[in-house]
Structure formats: C-alpha cells, structure tokens
C-alpha cells in the first residue's frame, strides 16, 4: 500500500485518502456553452504524466494538492490547496461583470 505524505498529518497509508481527480479550472458557468459545461462535468483529461490532483485525508477531512506521475504512480510533491488557490472566487450572474 502506498504512503501519501499529507501536508497536515504527515505520511499516512493510502487507504486514509480519497482522490477527487485532476485540478481543473471550472469554465464560467454563466457564460460557457452546454458542451463546455458537459466536458468539464463528465470528462477527465486522463493525462499520462505529471498531474496535479485533489486528495483528501478522510479522517481529518483535509484537502490538499498532490503532484503525481500517472505513469509511475509516484507522488512527487504534496502541498496545501492554498498554494494554488490564493484569491477569493466570485461568481457573476449571467449578464453581470466578469468573474474575478
């Protein structure tokens, strides 16, 4: 069983974690086409190589980012989500100003 280095809890067995797939940018839900939205909702990139993924340490409900090579299954780096998501995200209604 793999060991995953949780930024909050340190190295723990893989069975304590769940993966929520690749980190992807949500298209603007107020403006994107149905096709773009369906693509975002239902399709995975399934990249072969280094990807950024969402992982959660379940007992502590802590979400973080892992950089994992999907070919070798090697996790090269894990870090808090705050390193990628620094700004407050706003959503504008259709017809309003741009999303920040």
């Amino acid at each position: 069983m793999k060991i995953i280095n949780c930024p909050l809890n340190g190295p723990r067995n893989a069975l304590e974690f769940v993966c929520a797939g690749e980190v992807r940018t949500m298209p603007d839900p107020a403006r994107c086409s149905d096709h773009e939205w369906a693509d975002y909702t239902f399709l995975e990139n399934n990249t072969a190589g280094l990807v950024k993924e969402w992982w959660c340490h379940v007992p502590s409900s802590y979400w973080f980012i892992a950089e994992r090579n999907t070919v070798t299954d090697e996790i090269t780096r894990t870090y808090p989500a705050g390193e990628l998501f620094r700004e407050r995200v706003e959503f504008a209604a259709a017809g309003e100003g741009e999303k920040k």
């Binding site: 929520a20 959660c56 409900s61 979400w63 989500a81 705050g82 998501f85 620094r86 407050r88 995200v89």
Partner: peptide, 20 residues
C-alpha cells in the same frame, strides 16, 4: 456533505468556518 463543503471552500477561499 462535510467533505464536499471543504473541497469547494479550499478553492473559493470564502471567510467561513465549517465544523462537523
């Protein structure tokens, strides 16, 4: 539900504390 809430706010960075 709790895990989903934390997942989204890890991205939204809203000023909110969520406790199960």
């Amino acid at each position: 539900v709790y895990r989903t809430m934390l997942f989204w706010n890890a991205q939204w960075r809203l000023n909110v504390d969520i406790a199960n």
